[in-house]
């Protein structure tokens, strides 16, 4: 049993806006919830390399190829920042990664959709990274120090991701009729899955209240989703693209865009592992892990030999 005075003191620190550091007291459940949330976040970055990685070899120009390579490398880096932050809570890196490879862990459902054309790369940068920025800007103020600091680092890099995407969206939207059709088609396919990234409605989100009480999050799923819609509807209209939502309407009173209902059946289907690409993504991760085994072995052997050499010299 945890000391109730300790828990009260902990809540007081949170309410005062203090930052919790790895060696500080924290309730078990705070620790567990953070391990769950941060490792899922890390997995999302790692799995998130796959849909875009799919297009690296087919980028339409060297410039776009360099940008995409660099972006995908950033996602790997983001995964590593987050795994390292998760470890500060006492989670083992290997266990966390095993959970992903064995299908026990979750990651963002958005990456279980396929990237069917080059325009998808543009739209992922614009919408998916745009959504990630909204979520991560909030998390950069999270009560857990290592998580917040990883987020600050990630947000800085993520703004390049979004901007390169929106630049491409804008270019295609004023391109040939075929390009315009391609980009609109990509928006049509990615809009709703992106809205789902923010998670269930507040009433259906059992973790939300607790995470807010603990200062891990400061806004609800629906609030974050609304700011995403407000920002991206404007950006779509600026470049002459349509949002595939017949219920979309500006609300003069609230100053926000009203939008239609998300297909929650689809959301839960994908979360539970039956989205279009769930199996493929996991298989790709397993294959990468298995095929990377010789690299890990070689690195270890290299370190061993270098150590031997140094011992001989001295």
């Amino acid at each position: 049993m945890e000391d109730s005075t300790k828990r009260e003191a902990f809540q007081e620190r949170i309410d005062k806006g203090e930052t919790i550091e790895p060696k500080d007291f924290m309730p078990d459940r705070y620790r567990q919830q953070l391990i769950r949330m941060m490792s899922q976040h890390a997995h999302s970055e790692i799995v998130g390399m796959l849909p875009e990685g799919n297009w690296i070899t087919r980028a339409p120009s060297l410039r776009r190829k360099l940008i995409l390579l660099s972006k995908v490398q950033d996602e790997a880096g983001h995964g590593l920042y987050l795994y390292s932050a998760t470890e500060t809570l006492g989670a083992s890196r290997q266990e966390v990664i095993d959970d992903l490879l064995n299908g026990r862990a979750k990651y963002s459902s958005i990456f279980n959709y396929p990237t069917l054309s080059w325009a998808d790369v543009a739209v992922i940068g614009w919408l998916v990274d745009g959504a990630a920025i909204i979520n991560q800007t909030m998390l950069a103020r999270s009560s857990y120090g290592p998580y917040a600091r990883a987020m600050v680092r990630i947000c800085k890099e993520e703004s390049f991701h979004k901007k390169q995407g929106y630049e491409m969206v804008a270019k295609m939207a004023e391109g040939t009729p075929e390009q315009q059709e391609m980009i609109q088609d990509a928006v049509n396919r990615w809009w709703w899955p992106t809205l789902m990234m923010f998670g269930p409605h507040d009433d259906d989100s059992p973790n939300s209240a607790e995470l807010i009480k603990w200062g891990v999050k400061s806004k609800t799923n629906d609030e974050l989703r609304q700011s995403f819609v407000d920002r991206h509807v404007q950006e779509a209209h600026t470049v002459g693209l349509e949002i595939p939502d017949p219920d979309l309407e500006y609300n003069e009173e609230t100053g926000h865009w009203n939008f239609g209902e998300i297909d929650w059946d689809e959301f839960w289907k994908v979360v539970k592992g039956n989205g279009p690409m769930n199996r493929e993504r996991l298989n790709a991760r397993r294959k990468a892990h298995e095929e990377g085994e010789w690299v890990r072995e070689a690195a270890e052997e290299y370190a061993r030999k270098r150590k031997l050499r140094q011992e001989k010299v001295s």
């Binding site: 470890e87 083992s92 890196r93 290997q94 095993d98 490879l101 064995n102 299908g103 397993r286 892990h289 298995e290 085994e293 890990r296 270890e300």
Partner: peptide, 19 residues
């Protein structure tokens, strides 16, 4: 969908020292 046994590289690969 327990695939633990197929992932032979999983549990026997070392978790290198942390820096």
């Amino acid at each position: 969908m327990s695939k633990d046994e197929n992932l032979k590289s999983n549990n026997d690969d070392t978790q290198w020292p942390l820096w």
